[in-house]
Design a protein around this nucleic acid. Sequence first.
DNA 1: GCAAAAGTGTTAATGTTACACCCATGC
DNA 2: GCATGGGTGTAACATTAACACTTTTGC
Lengths: 231, 231
Amino acid sequence: MAVQRLPTLFQIAVDLVILTIRDDRLHVLQVVRGKDPFLGGRALPGGFVRLPEGLEATALRELTEETGLDGSTLHLEQLRTYIAADRDPRGPVASVAYLAIAPNLPTPVAGTDAARAHWEPLDDAGRTADPLAFDHDQILVDGLERARAKLEFTPVAAAFCGSTFTMTELRRVYEIVWGVPLDPPNFHRKITGTSGFVVETDAHRALGAGRPARLYRRGTAKSLHPPLLRP
Amino acid sequence: MAVQRLPTLFQIAVDLVILTIRDDRLHVLQVVRGKDPFLGGRALPGGFVRLPEGLEATALRELTEETGLDGSTLHLEQLRTYIAADRDPRGPVASVAYLAIAPNLPTPVAGTDAARAHWEPLDDAGRTADPLAFDHDQILVDGLERARAKLEFTPVAAAFCGSTFTMTELRRVYEIVWGVPLDPPNFHRKITGTSGFVVETDAHRALGAGRPARLYRRGTAKSLHPPLLRP
DNA sequence: GCAAAAGTGTTAATGTTACACCCATGC
DNA sequence: GCATGGGTGTAACATTAACACTTTTGC
């Protein structure tokens, strides 16, 4: 049998696509890199795994460090793993990408490591104004497509909203993430007709003009039957 | 700022959930381990990444070594990445799982490394008779669920079939993977009505009794609109 | 009252389901 | 002919889509 070379040893980075909606536009959290490689360049937030900390724990730690968000209110899921040879001079690095969906917070970005972090708006194609370091442009595209697909089959859109929200706010999430207008009456019926998507509260919210909108909370459903397909 | 510990160095294994249909039942490729840990136990086939070989290349190499399949005819996609501390005495190991869907081949399993490999039938819950080593039972469950979901939205069911197939063969794929019966006339219309799913050929195939079935080839569609949802 | 935003009613178009029935073959 | 599996027709039913219209507020 042929002599087998030893397996490569990798550092494993967890990189985060953190999406939120601000001012009716989709934004991604971006950091300005403070060290080589790509010093001064834009990148997704991320950090290395140090056992016994697992992937999810690393992702949550990075997330709270960079945004001050607490992980209990947001949606976090693994996207996929990327290996790029020569992507880092320190040696072989694998990147496990995570997608996080966060509500728009009163505290935009704060904390110790977060001085270099900011919310960057995305254009209709899901790209930032400046290209990102490493293969982070590809990770961002994959993350956005995952988010768009997940809205069809799960109630994850509510993760973009606060603890209570109006039907119009929820509809705006779909319209902004998908980039298409939706019919308000039909949307309202579709959501309220899907058991467990939202729970009606007795509270209402007025925007100044017009009839005040009823507020809803997130329901317990984990998936949508039937799905809410993109037009 | 606090002193930061060094990132953990990992070996990265690619583990494969290779599904096929034999004798009207779903099977997964299983190996009997030839070394520690779990010597003599059942596991999914897999191997370590050695740069410059990437994840996909490692998966394809393992696949051909274990099954003799050539990668051009089958479907291969990344599932997700698992990190389990203490899963291997040789040190920290991350597992990047891939899902492969293969047609039932005349050559069942052959080749140098494949002596210990065999097709293991799955029960209705998607489990093998004996538990698998490491966290491979979980990976198998995740792979099966991904396959079931993918059948709804993509034409990947054809990857279970040969280069040409009858409508009934394709329908059996859905019935076996989902574990539900489907109405043959409606299935036929649904598939032929989805442009790009299959391409009609002039050939037919007879099974002895009954009207010979038309043969189809795979089309070029990458997704199904509208989807073919599980009942 | 009037404008604005939320929510309901109604109908046509579309898609799904169930199943009766015809077609093409082996024996 | 007759059994068997492939394939088409058709009508009931459910879902979706479009949009008119009513409700409830601020000014």
